[in-house]
């Protein structure tokens, strides 16, 4: 089924980590301009799905297909997926001692060979975006995430997204570890700067991020599968009823 608005197409994806199947057949279709939320408890496979889509070598895809803008994502390594327009906002961003934020972003943009921000405007855009995300200028010359608070790390993830201008951004629990003020800043950053004609996948436990970023679709993951898909109201329902009730219902359905 050809859909020219389709930006990301995940079909029956199965993922193994160290020989254990974690993602057990996930399908997800994202059209241009859409924001999807994937919700679920710890261990439901949300983050594994995010890592697998981004090409982490520990997440072995055993079957299924992933296409992004007509390209077979699974043929590519993590670098190539990024260059093709995929972005992963990490739940636990890495600290890289000795590498400054500004040098890292320059290297990442240079790797794009001009597909992204023009290097001539780099400094200007960089400063603007830092201001938008309320990141102090001094962070530019600090080492990546070295001594950053949880909120600062997440803001730096969004800064990277903004600078790299991906087609599809997967934001893995970007809201976790944020206080309410930081959450607002990050959410506004995402709303302002997320790719307008691209797609966003918000992986989260909680409804609260979705108060600021209205998703087009909400998917609920349970034990490696998407068990329910709906509109923004589904997140509210989940918030009210809790995961356990849903889990009980779904377990009955599949007869576990």
């Amino acid at each position: 089924m050809a859909n020219k608005n389709r930006i990301l197409s995940v079909n029956d994806l199965h993922v193994e980590v160290e020989g254990k199947e974690i993602v057990k057949g996930v399908s997800l279709q994202i059209n241009s301009g859409e924001k999807h939320a994937i919700m679920g408890k710890n261990g439901s496979g949300k983050s594994s799905l995010a890592y697998a889509l981004s090409g982490h070598p520990n997440y072995k895809i055993t079957s299924g297909t992933v296409e992004m803008g007509g390209q077979d994502l699974l043929e590519m390594d993590a670098t190539e997926r990024s260059l093709a327009g995929l972005f992963l906002g990490f739940q636990y961003p890495m600290t890289i001692p000795g590498v400054t934020v500004v040098n890292f972003l320059r290297a990442a943009l240079r790797a794009r060979n001009g597909n992204g921000i023009d290097m001539k405007n780099f400094r200007k855009v960089f400063k603007e975006k830092m201001k938008l995300l309320k990141i102090d200028n001094s962070f530019a010359t600090r080492y990546i995430n070295d001594g950053f608070s949880g909120g600062e790390k997440k803001r730096l993830e969004i800064l990277q997204m903004v600078m790299l201008q991906p087609k599809v951004a997967i934001l893995d629990e970007t809201d976790s570890g944020l206080d309410i003020d930081a959450l607002k800043i990050v959410a506004n950053g995402i709303v302002d700067s997320a790719p307008k004609d691209g797609g966003v996948i918000l992986v989260t436990h909680y409804q609260r991020l979705l108060d600021y970023i209205k998703p087009d679709k909400v998917h609920i993951m349970l034990d490696g599968r998407i068990v329910k898909t709906g509109g923004p109201e589904l997140a509210l329902e989940l918030e009210a009823e809790g995961y356990n009730k849903l889990e009980a219902k779904e377990s009955q359905k599949v007869g576990v």
Binding site: T79, F87, L88, F90, F104, A107
Partner: peptide, 18 residues
């Protein structure tokens, strides 16, 4: 760390050097 850098589009060899 390598994966983090590569997920930003940096090639493996460059990531090792960084």
């Amino acid at each position: 760390m390598l994966f983090y850098l590569m997920s930003r589009g940096v090639a493996y060899k460059d990531a090792v050097n960084i």
